[in-house]
Amino acid sequence: MKRSELLSRILITAGMLLAVGTPLFFWTRTPLIHARMADNGGWNPDVIQAEVGKPLHLRLTSDDVMHGFSVGQMKIDAVDVEPGKVTDVTLSFDKPGIYKFFCTRWCGINHWRMRGTIEVSGPGANPEPAPTIPLYVTLGFDLDAPHESPVIPSNQPSAIRGQQLAANLEISKFSNPDFYRTNSPYQLFEALSSTNLSDLEKWDVVSYIWQSNTTPEALTNGRDLYAQNCAACHGENGGGDGVFADDLAKAGEASMQSMTGATDMLMQTPVDFTDSKRILGAAPALLQGKILRGGMGTGMPMWGSIFTEEQIWDLVAYLYSFQFDYQGEAQ
C-alpha cells in the first residue's frame, strides 16, 4: 500500500474516531440534572446524595420548557433552569436530613409533581427530629369533610369598620392566636351573636380580629408565596381560575371516563378562595392542614416538605384576604 493511501486512511479513521469519541467522552463526564415536565419524567436524577459541610455543586438543564429550582425549607433564591442551557447551583447543608427540591416555574398541569430529594448525610444532629404533630391532627379535624359556613356576609367585611366596632366590645378572648387558629370565621360570627351588632357588623369585627392575628409582613410574604406557588391553579385573584384550572377540569373529566366517577371531576377543580361559604367555614388550622398534607389525589400538592411552618401560617393569613377587606395591607 502506498504511503499516501495509508496516511489518508489513518486521517479518515482518526477523524471518525475523534468525531465519535469527543461527544461521548464529554457527555459521560458531564453529569447533569435534567428537568422535564412531570408527564415526561420530572427531575432526573430525582435523588441526590450530599454530605454535611461539603458544598454540593449541581448542574441543571431543562430538556423541554423553562423550569425553576429551589430547595424546600432552605433560604435560597430560586434559579431558572432554561431549555438547552446549563445552570450551576452550589448548595451547602449544615445538618443531615432529607431535603426536597422542586420546580418553581409553572411548567405544566403537573408542575407540582416535579420534586426530588437530597439525602444529606454526615455528622450533626439527629437527622430525623421528633415530628411536630400538626394542629389539625391535634384538633381532630377531618380535612376532607365539608366545612361550609351556613351564613355569609352580604358585602365584603371591612377590618377598619370592624376595628371601630370592636372598641366597644370585649373581644380579648377571641384575639389570641389559639382561638384564631382553631376556629373558623363563621364560629367567631356565631360567638358574636350575643352582641347587638348587625350581621354585617359582626362580619366586620371577624375581619378585624382575623387581621389582628397577622402582620403586614406576613401578608406580604403570604402573597408572594401564593403568587409563586398557588396562583397557577387557584388564580391570581383566588377565584379558582388559574391558567391550569381548565386543564385540571379536563383531567377530572378524563378520570371520570375511566375510574372513579364525578367526584374526581369536582375534586380536580381548584378551590375558589372567593367562595365565602367555603372559606368562612374553614378554620386556619384546617387550611394549614390542607396545605401541609395536600389534596390526596385531587391535584392539590403536599407542601409540608417545601414550606416552613411560618410560611404556611403566612399563606393561610393571606387566603382570608380574599374574603376580608384588609385595607392598606398586602392584597
Binding site: L11, M16, A19, V20, P23, L24, T61, D63, P83, G84
Partner: peptide, 23 residues
C-alpha cells in the same frame, strides 16, 4: 474528512446532546 467529522458529530450530538433542538 472535515465534512465526515461534522456529519458524525451531528449524529452523536443528536443522540447524546440536549433534546432541546434550538441548542
Amino acid at each position: 474528512v472535515v465534512m465526515l467529522m461534522g456529519y458524525i458529530f451531528a449524529i452523536l450530538a443528536g443522540l447524546v446532546g440536549t433534546p432541546v433542538g434550538s441548542h
